[in-house]
Write a protein that binds this DNA or RNA. Structure first.
Lengths: 221, 221
DNA sequence: GAATGTGAAAAGCTTCACAGCC
DNA sequence: GGCTGTGAAGCTTTTCACATTC
């Protein structure tokens, strides 16, 4: 095997493979073929094999992949062997929903702090995470040893918050603010823009209903 | 201009351009260059010009784009000239947060119905959307003339819910369930997997901290 | 002079198809 | 016989660079 170069596209599929493997493991399946696993993950078998080949030669030709072995190898690469300390900045509806999101909590991500500008939200209520004043962002980030941050502030505050998080030492950020952020290259940034996602749907629907010969618009797929 | 073929990648950027244009319009800017607009949108100037060229020749060489003109043209294509009727299936933390999300409400998307299996959640409380029993999904979808649906159920229920939505006539779905869905080709499906997103961050962080000569893993970017 | 629109080149990603291994 | 791992081909997307237009 030559030195692997893992593409962005591959990285974004690895967590899905892990979920599928855990499901198989939970069902007592010991070995899966690339076909079985790829179907569960919603990709082609060739895609799956190529993706996995970047991590190493974990399959057995003629047989398939040993579920527990592959799971162990992947969990190592993807960082699932330890707990991650997460902060949420912006404790509105979305931020507070995410602080209780099982998809995070069940996968070794602990929400260790939240921040908001609204004094009425400060403190801790019935088992929720403690909400700090955003004025104390730097201090609390360091105290709680936060490694990852979610930004769920309004658009206008997002860039400033991101800058402060980076200055405080956070190296990976998941932003839900509907505005493009600019950060240093060595900070990992993912942006989930829900307002954009829903408009992509409406775009395709508009396209569908305007499918007439006179309309000068078509799609490449 | 030849017959345009708009790529997926281009479509996913158009809503961002619209947001940026509205911001410029709000600031009283009458004309923008591809450089200005592309910087606001976080893409290259060449990228922006190529994207816009698929929709038509809206720019003025030597000058730039007339903000209001471009905005009008884009709003037409993207379906922002009318209100969209949206349903949310799964009224847990995430579903109820999304039903109040301003990023939707401010952009002509109305949440007209919500569904849950939990009888304790049924009804309507202080200005919230009405929550219906999922048993009545088909009836309410048709009554309320729902066009788009958000799926915020647990993973195990998502595929069944999606199938019922499609059978009831919904043609575009945004799913937050952390599981790949399979739907007919003529249904527009977007999947936002938050559990995957956060693990992509942890992957890159794990990679960063394992950057030693002995580790056989590197990235293509 | 200045900025757009666009072919052509480059880069990135997916699919194919088959040699090699179990 | 069956399935993996992977070069090569094919497709999509981005970047380049410049002729064209104002």
């Amino acid at each position: 095997m030559k030195v692997p170069r893992i593409s962005q596209a591959t990285v974004s599929r690895l967590p899905v493979y892990v979920d599928c493997l855990m499901k198989f493991a939970g069902e007592g399946v010991a070995i899966v073929s690339s076909k079985q696993l790829s179907q569960a993950a919603g990709v082609s078998a060739a895609q799956l094999r190529k993706d996995l080949s970047y991590l190493g030669d974990f399959g057995i030709p003629g047989t398939g992949y040993v579920v527990n072995n592959l799971l162990r190898q992947m969990a190592r690469y993807i960082g699932l062997t330890r707990q991650w300390r997460v902060a949420i900045v912006g404790y509105g509806d979305l931020g507070s929903a995410l602080s209780r999101y099982r998809g995070f909590l069940d996968r070794n991500f602990s929400i260790v702090a939240a921040f908001d500008v609204d004094p009425a939200k400060l403190g801790r209520r019935n088992g929720d995470v403690e909400v700090h004043s955003i004025a104390n962002l730097e201090t609390v980030i360091k105290e709680k040893e936060v490694e990852l941050a979610l930004i769920t502030t309004p658009a206008h505050a997002a860039q400033q918050v991101a800058d402060r998080l980076v200055a405080a030492g956070v190296r990976a950020i998941l932003s839900f603010a509907p505005v493009p952020l600019v950060l240093p290259d060595d900070v990992v940034l993912r942006e989930v823009d829900l307002a954009t996602e829903i408009r992509i749907l409406s775009f395709y629907e508009t396209l569908r209903s305007s499918q007439t010969p006179s309309t000068p618009l078509s799609l490449s797929c």
